[in-house]
Each structure stands twice: as C-alpha cells, then as structure tokens.
C-alpha cells in the first residue's frame, strides 16, 4: 500500500477512470449516450444528475454489471469488461439497488469482503469506523437503510482501495449520517484514494468534490470545478415576477434587455424568473412587462444558488444564456 502511494505521487496524472464514447442502449432507449469522461487519480469527482439520467448505468458499466453497446471503459488502465476481477481488487464499491444478505450478520458481510479481497483488515475496526460497531453481530436483515449503507461502505473500505465508487451513498441517511459519510470520503481521499461519488442532490457532493459532472439523459451537460460552476451562475440574482398575460413575445422582449441572462417560465403565463447579470436594471424589466400589456401583481428577487444551476441543467426549464 505504502509503495503504491509513493508511485502515485511520482506520477500524479495517472487516470483512475476513463470512459471513451461509452454508449448503452436498451432497445430504442439510450441510457448512456457517447459519454467521455476522465478522472485523475486523487480526485473527488461528484457525478450528478436526476434519477434516470444514466448515472447508475454508467457505474454498472464500470463494474461490468452491464455491457456497453459501444465505447470503452477502463479503471486504472484496466478494461472493465476483460480485466474486471483484477480491477475490482483495487476498488471499493457501494453499488445502487443492492440488498444485504438477510441471514448473515454485519460482521459476516465484512468478513466476506475480507476473504474475497484476501486482506488482513480487522472487521471490528471497520464496523467502528462506519459507526455500527454495536450492531456487528446482529443479522443484517434487521438493519435500517442507513445502517445497511454504513455496512456496505465498510465493505467498500476493505483492503484500503485506490478508488471508491459510491452510488448515492447518502440515500437513507439523516443529515448527520450524510455528514459522517462525507468525513470518511475526505479522510480516505487525504490518503490518496480517488473517489467517484454519484448523487441526485447537489448539496451532498458540493461539500466534498473537487470536480462535478452533471449528467442528463445520458449525456454530460457540465463537467467543471465547483468554483467554475459557481462563477457561471447568471449574475447571482434573479427577479421573480408574478402576474398575468406573460406571452412568448413578452418573454422575448425581456430577453432582449441588456444584461438579462435568462428567462424561465415558472408557471405558464403567470410566473417567470428573470436571471440578471451584474448591472441589469430590474426597473427596465418591470416596465418592459407593463408596457407590453401584461399585468405585474408582485415581484421579488432571489439569490441564485448552485441548486438553480443544477436545476437549469437537469430540467426542461427554459434557459437562455
């Protein structure tokens, strides 16, 4: 283990995960569409997208649960389809849609991972690390969803893997549990482990990820650092106008106003959100609306957040940059 870390420090640009034109079709449905992705060793990568965007399919291709229709996936330069066993010896996984073995105890689960990876980990230490030491000798069928998540995370940590793949690891956890998972992610990452972390909730990955990729309908619609994504937020402020008679012509007229970055229909004809860049005039927007014959009943301003950006990327709200 130690030697490996030295090696990785000497070659800091080794690739942990590489997807090259990966496509998965189910009949006419395209779950993953020509996806390219490169994750460097040592990174914490947040893989974001709404449910059904193709995140789990992508991860399942990495694990060889699913065979890609086209393209190539590799982990540490090992082909996911042909070198799966070798590759999985170096990674820890918290997969989606798993179930625990009902009749085995938590400890037996961890012992199974230890025997499978042929390591010398101490099951008790791992149980303690994920906070379920007291439940180790209970049958896993009695575990809550949160405890099961912790147990599988402990299995994933067996053998001190070079890459952790976590598919929605905070599902079923209370905010405290989610924070503990993030702490474990930071801790293993500080010792050199690359982390690939999927979620449909931005705030879960925001706090720990160096880089975020946003997947929508099987395509990567954004791939950048949190800072850069932040700086892309239009002006940091949006004007929400409620009233009536907001026709498409009016929306176009608003878009034409200087420094208006986006116009989003929130309720058809009755409520719109106007993304404002710095220097935009709210008065200009409001008077434009009233001059075109629509009625303004109320308006307010909103601080734009990463969540808005995420929503903009992953929903059908109209966004014009």
């Amino acid at each position: 283990m130690q030697t490996y870390m030295y090696l990785s420090e000497e070659s800091p640009h080794m690739t942990a995960i590489e997807l090259d034109g990966v496509t998965k079709r189910y009949g006419s449905l395209v779950a993953v569409d020509n996806l390219d992705l490169q994750i460097e060793e040592g990174e914490v990568f947040g893989f974001l997208g709404p449910n059904g965007a193709g995140k789990s399919t992508t991860i399942n291709i990495l694990l060889d649960f699913v065979k890609p229709t086209a393209g190539r996936a590799s982990v540490f330069d090992m082909d996911c389809q042909n070198q799966g066993k070798e590759l999985r010896n170096r990674i820890g996984v918290l997969p989606e849609g798993y179930d625990v073995y009902d009749r085995l105890t938590g400890r037996q689960h961890i012992e199974f991972a230890i025997e499978s990876k042929n390591t010398t980990d101490d099951p008790q230490a791992l149980l303690e690390r994920v906070g379920i030491a007291d439940a180790g000798d209970r049958k896993a069928s009695g575990y809550s969803k949160g405890m099961a998540q912790r147990l599988i995370l402990a299995m994933a940590l067996v053998g001190d893997p070079d890459l952790l793949i976590l598919d929605e690891p905070t599902t079923g956890l209370d905010p405290n549990g989610a924070r503990e998972i993030r702490e474990i992610i930071r801790e293993v990452n500080s010792r050199g482990t690359t982390v690939f972390f999927s979620s449909h909730i931005l705030s879960q990955v925001e706090a720990v990820c160096d880089r975020v990729g946003i997947l929508r309908d099987g395509r990567m619609v954004a791939d950048d650092s949190i800072e850069n994504l932040r700086s892309n937020i239009p002006g940091g402020e949006s004007l929400v106008v409620e009233g009536s008679g907001f026709s498409p012509d009016i929306l176009d007229a608003i878009r034409a106003i200087d420094n208006v970055e986006s116009v989003t229909v929130r309720t058809e004809g009755e409520m719109i959100g106007v993304g404002l860049a710095k220097g935009a005039s709210k008065t200009a927007v409001l008077s434009e609306i009233e001059e075109s014959g629509a009625v303004v009943d109320d308006f307010s301003t909103e601080e734009a957040s990463l969540e808005d950006l995420f929503a903009a990327y992953t929903t059908d709200q109209e966004v014009t940059a």
């Binding site: 060889d64 649960f65 066993k85 999985r88 798993y98 625990v100 199974f112 299995m155």
Partner: peptide
C-alpha cells in the same frame, strides 16, 4: 434481491 451487486463488486468473476 440485489445482493449480487455486493458479490460482484468484489473481485469475483461470474464463473467463480
């Protein structure tokens, strides 16, 4: 049940 996701996340082939 999905327990296979745990089993095959570990270094085992489907033949094994």
């Amino acid at each position: 049940s999905g327990t296979i996701n745990l089993l095959l996340s570990l270094p085992h082939t489907r033949g094994e």
